[in-house]
C-alpha cells in the first residue's frame, strides 16, 4: 500500500486516506524523502484528517519524516489531527514538539507560507 504524494508548485501535498501500518509508514517515509529530492520541494503538508488511530511507532515515523525533511530543506506541516488522536498521543507522552500543525489543509498551506517567509 503506497500513499500518493501530489506536487503543487514548490509544495508536496499528502493526504493519508488509509490506516497506517508499520510497513506503509516506512514506505511512506522513503517515498516522501525521495520525492523531495526529486522535485526540490520547499514545503510539505501531511493531512491526517481521515486517520483515526496513531500508535507510538507511527508517531515516531511521522516525527522522523518531519526531522528528515527539515534536514533536506523542506518544512513540514501536519494538518487535521483528530481530537481522539491528539488525546491518545498526549496520553502516550508523545508531544511532537517541534512539528508545526494546522487545523486543515487550507490553514496548513498558510502556515507553510508563514514558516517559509521566516
Amino acid at each position: 500500500m503506497r500513499i500518493p504524494i501530489l506536487k503543487l508548485h514548490d509544495y508536496l501535498l499528502i493526504s493519508v486516506q488509509v490506516e497506517l501500518d508499520d510497513q506503509t509508514a516506512l514506505q511512506f517515509q522513503e517515498d516522501v524523502l525521495e520525492k523531495i529530492h526529486e522535485e526540490g520541494s520547499r514545503g510539505v503538508v501531511i493531512d491526517l484528517t481521515s486517520v483515526d488511530m496513531i500508535d507510538s511507532f507511527i508517531a515516531k515515523v511521522l516525527g522522523d519524516v518531519v526531522d528528515m525533511s527539515n534536514l533536506m530543506g523542506a518544512r513540514v506541516v501536519l494538518t487535521g489531527i483528530q481530537p481522539a488522536v491528539a488525546i491518545t498521543l498526549i496520553d502516550m507522552g508523545i508531544v511532537l514538539d517541534d512539528v508545526p500543525t494546522a487545523l486543515d489543509l487550507e490553514q496548513g498551506l498558510d502556515r507553510l507560507q508563514l514558516e517559509l517567509e521566516d
Partner: peptide, 12 residues
C-alpha cells in the same frame, strides 16, 4: 499543559 499540547496537535 496536556490540554494545550493536544490543542497544538490539532492545529491551534
Amino acid at each position: 499543559i496536556q490540554a494545550s499540547e493536544a490543542v497544538r496537535l490539532v492545529g491551534a
